[in-house]
């Protein structure tokens, strides 16, 4: 007695650009869920402080930033209290860095899965990126608390703007992670390069400072970094800082989508050699 008519699979060499085959990803959606669940479950196992780390990490970073950049360097914060000014930026930035780091290492970290069984390989970077959302939600509650303390209310447009900017963060992280995880299979140089990449990217993103310090003619080039658009968007949506999305945001969106699409294509076209190369 069979529950379903057996499917027929043709196994043959693929050439050139493989089809994106996103339907396969849908068939395996439960695996995505389980991978995220496992990442979350295991992350704080055998730690003394457990889930408290999800609170400690962003709060400590915020305190360091507030002291160094707010008090010592006295960077302008658009007239907002520096703690919430930096925390509103650390929120998407923390998600981005976690997603990027875990996503880029995901294939190599799950070598035994890659060399032993079939499943859409894209599940690994995808679930690693999405797993970052749990810490994001926790950090979000901390920010809410801070905002209540500083008596700041988000604007109504936060309701539609936040999900959009959140999506932009995830798309950017996934796009880069697809590229780097696939390259990492062949060249472990990625592991060495990642810390620098995230560090430089942090400087190119208005996390510690306000993007108002960038002079107008440079804004267009600055917008090539999608995370700049994201951080500005978060500050605008949550704290009402700045004037809101301007045409340069479209550049950020375009770059982000380009990263994702090219990442998908590159990943799919190298996917067939993963098990042999890793």
């Amino acid at each position: 007695m069979k529950a379903h008519e057996p499917i027929t699979v043709y196994i043959k060499p693929t050439h050139g650009l493989a089809a994106l085959n996103l339907r396969d990803l849908w068939t395996y959606r439960e695996l995505i869920y389980f991978m995220i669940w496992r990442d979350v479950k295991v992350k704080y196992k055998q730690t003394l402080l457990g889930m408290a780390w999800a609170v400690i990490q962003p709060v400590m970073t915020m305190l360091v930033f507030t002291f160094l950049f707010g008090r010592v360097a006295k960077l302008p914060s658009d007239g907002l209290p520096y703690p919430i000014f930096s925390f509103a930026a650390l929120l998407p930035w923390g998600l981005f860095v976690t997603a990027l780091n875990h996503g880029s290492r995901s294939l190599v970290a799950h070598q035994n899965m890659v060399t032993k069984i079939y499943f859409p390989r894209m599940i690994l970077p995808l679930s690693s990126v999405l797993a970052g959302l749990v810490d994001f939600v926790i950090a979000f509650f901390i920010l809410s608390g801070l905002m209540i303390y500083y008596d700041t209310l988000p604007a109504w447009h936060a309701l539609w703007a936040l999900p959009l900017f959140l999506a932009l963060t995830l798309i950017t992280a996934l796009g880069v992670a697809l590229w780097l995880s696939a390259i990492n299979v062949k060249y472990r140089d990625v592991n060495q390069a990642l810390p620098f990449l995230t560090q430089f990217w942090l400087f190119a993103t208005p996390v510690a400072y306000s993007s108002s310090v960038i002079s107008d003619p440079w804004q267009w080039i600055y917008a090539l970094n999608p995370m700049a658009g994201v951080v500005n968007g978060f500050r605008w949506a949550l704290l009402g800082a700045g004037s809101g999305p301007n045409p340069t945001l479209w550049i950020s969106v375009a770059v982000s989508l380009l990263l994702l699409l090219s990442g998908l294509v590159y990943f799919r076209s190298t996917e067939r050699t993963f098990a042999d190369m890793i």
Partner: peptide
Amino acid sequence: SRVTEPTKGLVIVRG
């Protein structure tokens, strides 16, 4: 088991 791809040839698997 589709872990790796063949260089040449074809396999047809039902199920």
